[in-house]
Amino acid sequence: MSAHATEHGTMNLKLIVWRQSAPDKAGRFETYEAKGITPHHSFLEMLDVVNEDLIKAGQDPIAFDHDCREGICGMCSAVVNGVPHGGHERTTLCQLHMRKFKDGDAIYIEPWRARAFPILRDLVVDRGSLDKLIQAAGYVSCHTGGVPDGNAILVGKPEADYAMDAAECIGCGACVAACPNGAAMLFAGAKVSQLAELPQGQVEAPQRVAAMVRAMADQGFGNCSNHYECEGACPKGIKVKFIARLNREFTKALFLEKIGAISTVKAASAD
């Protein structure tokens, strides 16, 4: 127990954690005790404490993704009691603190589950499929040069705010993990909306939406059934209005293509 822990009322928790040694190995749930956890521990720090005990006992520590631990990098990822990031509004797993739990609680910890996110080890999944979506079209392909002069391209305040709201997405994949269909529509919707709202992104908007929709299918993501689980789980508060925008942009692009107003959209496979 740390010196810090002695100053506080500590709690003991029962963790039921998914353990899987390799992508092609069968996984199973293992039960661990988390002892001496303070309310100030973050969820990841709690796992650190458990892992130290496991290492001391000569066992394999629980593998989990993490990086900045301040809620902005999008690396941490685990489903806690059935909800990605634990289900507190606008809270990533690293910003989820143990004061949200009570002494004696049993906590289920699982990796993101979706066909497009194969499990690498324990709670670590391969989210490269989201990178493939970005590669397919989530960027602006014109040469943008150096840093442009401020206000060289005029963007209205409402448009800038809208694009910024969409750009809040940290690409953690909680939307996919929460989706009953393993779909990436909230992620793709945020990217498509962000770029389609700004002058730099409008040029290629039809090609982008076509390529991203095709890439989602290629990467094994599912379809959207408008359950809005993604919005509920998103730690950045990305709204499903961006999925509506995605649908609108797709329909618009399809129409423009069918009437011959734009050249045939080539949806390059992401691989």
Partner: peptide, 17 residues
């Protein structure tokens, strides 16, 4: 969709569905 999400979570808790 069933193929895209083949494994259920141990805890079935839904936020909006």
């Amino acid at each position: 969709n069933n193929k895209a999400n083949p494994t259920a979570y141990a805890v079935d808790r839904r936020l909006r569905a």
